[in-house]
Design a protein around this nucleic acid. Structure first.
Lengths: 216, 216
DNA sequence: CAATATTTTTGAACGGTGTTCAATAATATT
DNA sequence: AATATTATTGAACACCGTTCAAAAATATTG
């Protein structure tokens, strides 16, 4: 069966070749300019061959976006052990998540705005409860429970908090992605405020909205 | 000069004819299916004529989206006098804004994700300070100042708060638009929580994140 | 090795898109 | 009535995603 294995391996390599070419085109020319014919030109094959390895263009795009979004999710979980303090962990993870997402705007946008089954596995769907699968929501819920361990909130309260944070982070990233010409300084002013103030408010921590305000 | 006036009026009528046809196509078949040729077919002219009234397809789309987004903004300001209580006004306005935006998902998405000059006039760009032009930000700032009139915050604090609320509302609307199959019940659970809890936290009001928690 | 079956790759075609432009039809000006 | 201006068209260009029968390359058998 080594023959079939090799076949499959070669097919996988070809798929990777196609995906890599697509990623480069998106990086160089933008996602709007991606076309089957351009991919074909880049890998030096005829356009038709691509349909031997993928069902259609959307399929390619979705696979690409899923892969990229997994990287963003990984960035989140890498903060899992960053600190003993749950609040610090929350802040670290969110900042990580935001900065990773901003480093691949095309992929993040496409992944979040796409509701294909391919991509939906990883994105922050509001469907699935926090306990289910979405890694970002699950991580946030854990953090929030930890933060409120002295005065426990209900499961649904925690879940709503987490969803609001995910939604707000999503909004921030989207806006920063759209407003490409925004100065770095302004950008980080917003991110800082979000991570240091807004998140804590949404997590039910601050009574005053400025840093230095009383915490619980 | 009545001749030129009529000319211009007729040209404007033709533009409106084209825009209306485009809006219908978007409504019936979705924004992806909009094409110059389809518009032409609908208004019973040849495709080329459209370029006599608009520079290109994007121009048509942008104009359409700007018009729609103005309606959403209008929904916001209609809440301006809804209540004496600034907190109630804030809640009313936000709920209005969200529900109007959800009633025209295509237009809202396109307007928010588009950074063309046409559209940028109306969308919540982070560029312009709150005092400048963006009506949503300006309204929020007024509300927030009113809310905190007894313990005034700095201009930049107020502005950051407002921007965070706009960003979070944007995120919520976007998510609800993308997840089209979400049940009405779940949808309103999120909107309610956003309007009744999250906004108040971001506005620096609640110390506890549940309704009934102490206010300042 | 030769013949056959299988898989990979191609070229041509279909129907679609946005856009341009010279030629025509309609209207207004002289 | 002749001329200038404007509105409208048809044909064409250069793209696009996708399909499919035919060809090339490879693997499997006798």
């Amino acid at each position: 069966m080594s023959l079939e294995e090799r076949r499959e391996r070669e097919k996988e390599e070809m798929r990777k070749l196609i995906l890599d070419a697509a990623a480069e085109i998106i990086f160089l020319d933008g996602i709007d300019k991606l076309s089957i014919r351009k991919i074909a030109e880049r890998i030096e094959y005829s356009p038709s061959i691509i349909y031997h390895y993928f069902n259609n263009k959307d399929n390619i795009l979705n696979q690409l976006m899923s892969n990229a979004y997994q990287k963003i999710i990984t960035a989140l979980s890498s903060a899992k052990l960053s600190s003993d303090h749950p609040v610090e962990r929350l802040k670290d993870a969110t900042r990580n998540y935001i900065e990773t997402a901003l480093s691949m705007p095309n992929e993040y946008n496409a992944a979040q705005l796409n509701s294909s089954p391919d991509v939906l596995k990883y994105t922050a769907s509001l469907f699935r409860g926090a306990t289910n699968k979405n890694p970002a929501l699950a991580f946030l819920c854990d953090c929030l429970k930890d933060i409120h361990k002295n005065a426990p909130r209900s499961e649904s309260e925690i879940e709503l908090m987490a969803q609001m944070i995910v939604i707000a982070a999503f909004g921030l990233i989207m806006r920063l992605n759209v407003e490409a010409e925004l100065e770095e300084k302004q950008k980080y002013r917003l991110i800082d405020h979000f991570v240091n103030v807004t998140i804590l408010q949404m997590a039910g921590i601050y009574t005053n909205n400025m840093p230095g305000g009383k915490s619980i």
